[in-house]
C-alpha cells in the first residue's frame, strides 16, 4: 500500500513537471505554429542562473526567482532574435531552426561553462521525507504537486478571466481572426513566450531539485517527454498537454515499479510505444475532438 501511494505521488509529481513544460510548448505552438525544440534549454538556463546566483552568495529562494526570471528573459529573447524573422514560416522551418538554436545553446553551455555537471546546494525541503497518514513521501514531490496545482489554477483563471488571457485563448483558436478583431500579434507572441518561459523556469527548478546538479544537456530528457505529452494531448491544446504530461510521468513511474528487471532497459521505449498506440486510435490527440480545455472551451 505504501509503495503504491508513493509511486502515484512520484508519478504525479514527475508528470506535473512535464505538464508545465508541455503547456508552454502548446501555448507557443498555438500562437505561432512553432514546436520549440529549444524549450529544454530554458530549464538548463534556469539551472545555471540558479548556480550563478547561489555562487554570488544569494540565498536559495531569491536565487530561485533569479532562475525563473532568467528563463523568462531567455524565452522572450529567443522570440525576438531567432523566431521573429521566421513568422509565418512552415512548421518544418520553425522546428529545425529551434533545433539549431538548441544545439548552439548546448554548445555554448559546454564551451563557456563546463561539460561537467555543476552541483547545486538545495534546501532541506528538497531532499527530506514527510510522513502522511503513515506513508513516507518525498517532500519535494509534495511541493511539486502543490506548485503544479497552484500554477494550473492560476493559469486557468488568467486565461478565462483576464482580457489578456482571453486574447491568448482567442489567438489559440484562430490567430488570424484574433488579429482581425484587434488582438495585437506582437503582444501575443511576447506573452506566449514569457508564460512558457516562466513555466519552464519553475519546471527547471523542480527538475534541478530532483537531480541536484546542472549540466549542458539536462533539458533533453524532460523536453522529449513534454513533446510526447503535447502530441498525446493534441498539438496546441493546453489542457491536452497538461493531461498528456501527467499521463506520461505516471506511466514512466508506474512502469519503473511493475516492469520485471529484464524489461527495465526498455522502459522508455515501452512508454513511448504506449503513447504511439494511443495515437493510432486518436491520431490527433486524446482531446482532439472534445470541447473541454483551457483554450478551446467557450
Amino acid at each position: 500500500m505504501d509503495s503504491v501511494v508513493q509511486t502515484l505521488v512520484n508519478g504525479v509529481a514527475l508528470g506535473g513537471t512535464y505538464a508545465l513544460l508541455a503547456i508552454g510548448l502548446a501555448m507557443v505552438y498555438s500562437v505561432m505554429g512553432l514546436i520549440n525544440f529549444a524549450h529544454g534549454e530554458l530549464l538548463t538556463i534556469t539551472g545555471y542562473a540558479l548556480v550563478g546566483a547561489l555562487s554570488l552568495g544569494i540565498p536559495f529562494w531569491p536565487a530561485a526567482l533569479v532562475g525563473i526570471a532568467a528563463a523568462v528573459v531567455a524565452a522572450v529573447a529567443m522570440e525576438r532574435i531567432a523566431f521573429r524573422p521566421l513568422r509565418g514560416a512552415s512548421l518544418e522551418t520553425l522546428l529545425l531552426s529551434s533545433f539549431a538554436i538548441s544545439v548552439v545553446l548546448q554548445v555554448l553551455f559546454a564551451e563557456l561553462i563546463s561539460t561537467r555537471a555543476k552541483p547545486v546546494q538545495t534546501p532541506g525541503i528538497f531532499s527530506s521525507n514527510v510522513t502522511l497518514l503513515g506513508v513516507s513521501i518525498g517532500s519535494l514531490q509534495l511541493v511539486t504537486i502543490g506548485v503544479v496545482i497552484v500554477l494550473l489554477v492560476g493559469l486557468t483563471v488568467f486565461l478565462r478571466r483576464s482580457m489578456l488571457g482571453r486574447s491568448v485563448r482567442a489567438a489559440g483558436i484562430d490567430f488570424e481572426m484574433a488579429r482581425l478583431v484587434g488582438v495585437r500579434a506582437n503582444s501575443m507572441f511576447l506573452l506566449a513566450f514569457a508564460l512558457s518561459g516562466a513555466l519552464a523556469g519553475v519546471a527547471g527548478l523542480l527538475w534541478v531539485g530532483q537531480r541536484g546538479s546542472v549540466d549542458p544537456s539536462m533539458g533533453l530528457a524532460p523536453v522529449i517527454a513534454a513533446f510526447l505529452a503535447t502530441i498525446i494531448g493534441g498539438l496546441g491544446n493546453l489542457s491536452g498537454a497538461a493531461l498528456g504530461g501527467l499521463l506520461y510521468g505516471l506511466l514512466q513511474t508506474v512502469l519503473e515499479q511493475v516492469l520485471p528487471g529484464s524489461l527495465q532497459p526498455y522502459r522508455d521505449a515501452i512508454v513511448v510505444s504506449l503513447v504511439v498506440a494511443i495515437l493510432l486510435f486518436r491520431p490527433n490527440g486524446v482531446l482532439s475532438r472534445g470541447r473541454a480545455g483551457l483554450v478551446r472551451e467557450a
Binding site: L91, L235, A269, V272, V276, L279, N284
Partner: peptide, 15 residues
C-alpha cells in the same frame, strides 16, 4: 496529420 507526424517520428527515434 503532418504536424503530429513530425513529433511521431521523433517518438520513433527515442524508441
Amino acid at each position: 496529420t503532418p504536424s503530429a507526424a513530425v513529433l511521431g517520428t521523433f517518438a520513433l527515434l527515442v524508441i
